[in-house]
Design a protein around this nucleic acid. Structure first.
Length: 482
RNA sequence: CGGGGUAUGGCACAGUUGGUAGUGCGCUUCGUUCGGGACGAAGAGGUCGUGAGUUCGAGUCUCACUACCCCGACCA
């Protein structure tokens, strides 16, 4: 049974993850290389996934009173320079427009790498009183960061994201926002993508340029490397002081606002593709898949084709009526085998095979993408069974990924052990660390692994740093970054 | 930005001592098919990365340039 059919033209995930990844993203028509280095075209089948993310995050943000807006692509270089750490962090990867309309610009324009500066310049105009707070604005846009080495979705020169930027009366209120956003990101990964994550705080050297504290969701990829999945920053008053966003408090004093920013990008889709999927192609979790069920008619001569298509159409309408995203593949130019393979590469969670046999028995054959298992289901039981199957696939994908993460998260007490793990399986390593940047840098140089985060809720303990032996109070999560 | 490699049809590649470009897949049309990438017939598609040079003649030899890929450094 459950035979895995070999894909003739697809590289194997089991042999080389990164070759497989590129191959499958291109062949599943998720994305394609654009003529500009490091840039890609997100094709309709891939963009539909991004739209699903947008829908989910927009719902979550709306529930917290956040509204969408749009700010310009270009940022005057003079504005970017206002927050020192911010400009220092981003300078090496900026694209800068120096000529406009054939004339050299007096103040070059930066193509936004993120929008803090241009948004906060506006916020300073808009905020004067405690009554103007909180400011709760999000924007969906594209940003550009000139990376030296790029990779489809995971690190592209231009990428799409949402960036939320809020301003509050108190730091407590800002922190609530920071954690709320972080939890949304966790939900997108875990509930929609079926990708487990660890939530935590970034170290000083890994935090956002200009932030007081950065929080992150970190996922573990199949090759044991870690992916920073989304970040939420407590900006404190760093930017409000640089951009003069001040307000009169309820008791008449002047104070700077407390700010947050948080972002979730198309990189996340790369994590989704890497995590699931197998030698036959992508495996999309039902909750995010744009097509959850594909119906494939199996013809027998010209006889009865019309009746078969009619039966398939009826099956599709029943599914769609139930809110299931179903597609009938009625192309007669492709053979059945080819269709099976195409939809497998594209990772559609459930395939219904419908031939004369099923039509006569008033049934469908239901095949699940993740295990390959096929069962014959009576037509009248189809709807509840498919709903159940979609849930089962979602759960099973999450559990498999969670097991992988747990199996590859190791407590380590000696540096030799640390080095050994990084040389072999990689994965997450939990170890005491003295919290000194120079020590972290030496660990990274020796093993390629740096701190991913201090997991939320990590207990305070008495320990010694895994590398330098100095006193340490917490076990940090280490890993090699994607 | 350092080290290595590659560049020939949409994709993957072959092309011998220099003689004017080929194979497989894909694509188009027609027909027969369809329970795991169908078959037959007939077609379309290439300034051989760019620019110079050597030569009667360059995909092939020489030089320069450019782009891309892999490894490393970098990557809130």
């Amino acid at each position: 049974m459950n035979k895995q059919f070999e894909k003739k033209e697809l590289k194997k995930k089991s042999e080389n993850l990164s070759d497989w990844y590129t191959d499958v993203v291109l062949k599943a028509a998720i994305a394609d290389y654009a003529p500009v280095k490091g840039c890609m075209v997100i094709r309709p089948y891939g963009y539909a996934l991004w739209e699903a993310v947008q829908d989910a995050l927009n719902r979550m943000m709306r529930s917290a009173g956040i509204e969408n807006a749009y700010f310009p692509l270009f940022i005057p270089h003079s504005l970017l320079e206002k927050e020192k750490q911010h400009v220092a962090g981003f300078s090496p990867e900026l694209a800068i427009v120096t000529i406009g309309g054939g004339e050299k610009l007096k103040d070059p324009l930066v193509v936004r790498p993120t929008s803090e500066t241009i948004m906060y310049d506006m916020y300073s105009k808009w905020v004067h009183s405690w009554r103007d707070l909180p400011v709760l604005i999000n924007q969906w846009n594209n940003v550009v960061r000139w990376e030296k080495r790029t990779y489809l979705f995971l690190r592209t020169t231009e990428f799409l994201w949402q960036e939320g930027h809020t301003a509050h009366e108190t730091e407590e209120e800002a922190m609530e926002m920071v954690m709320k956003a972080l939890n949304w990101y966790r939900q997108i990964y875990e509930d929609y993508f079926a990708v487990p994550v660890v939530m935590g705080k970034k170290s000083e050297s890994e935090k956002f340029a200009g932030a007081k504290t950065t929080f992150t969701v970190e996922a573990l990829m199949p090759d044991g490397k870690a992916l920073q999945g989304g970040t939420s920053h407590n900006l404190g008053q760093n930017f409000s002081k640089s951009f003069d966003i001040s307000f009169q408090t309820r008791d008449g004093k002047s104070e700077f606002v407390w700010q947050t920013s948080f972002g979730f990008s198309t990189r996340s889709l790369g994590g989704l593709f890497l995590t699931h999927g197998d030698d036959s192609g992508l495996v999309l979790p039902p909750k995010i898949a744009s097509i959850q069920v594909v119906i494939i008619p199996i013809f027998r001569g010209d006889d009865g084709q019309e009746a078969l298509l009619e039966y398939c159409g009826e099956v599709r309408d029943a599914l769609v009526g139930q809110g299931i995203r179903a597609r009938l593949d009625n192309r007669d130019s492709q053979s059945v085998g080819r269709k099976f393979n195409e939809w497998e590469v594209k990772g559609v969670p459930v395939r219904l095979e419908v031939g004369r046999k099923e039509m006569e028995d008033r049934a469908v054959t239901m095949a699940r993408r993740d295990t390959g298992e096929k069962v014959l289901v009576e037509r009248k039981e189809m709807l509840p069974k498919i709903e159940k199957l979609l849930e089962d696939i979602q759960t099973s994908l999450y559990e498999t990924a969670l097991k992988h993460m747990n199996d590859n998260t190791r407590d380590v007490s000696t540096f030799a052990e640390f080095e050994d793990i990084m040389k072999t399986t990689r994965g997450f390593i939990r170890a005491f660390w003295c919290e000194e940047a120079s020590c972290e840098a030496r660990i990274k140089e020796a093993t390629k692994a740096a701190t991913r985060c201090l997991p939320l809720g990590a207990a305070e303990e008495n320990g010694v740093c895994v590398h330098c032996g100095k006193p340490a109070t917490h076990r940090w999560l280490f890993g090699q970054s994607y």
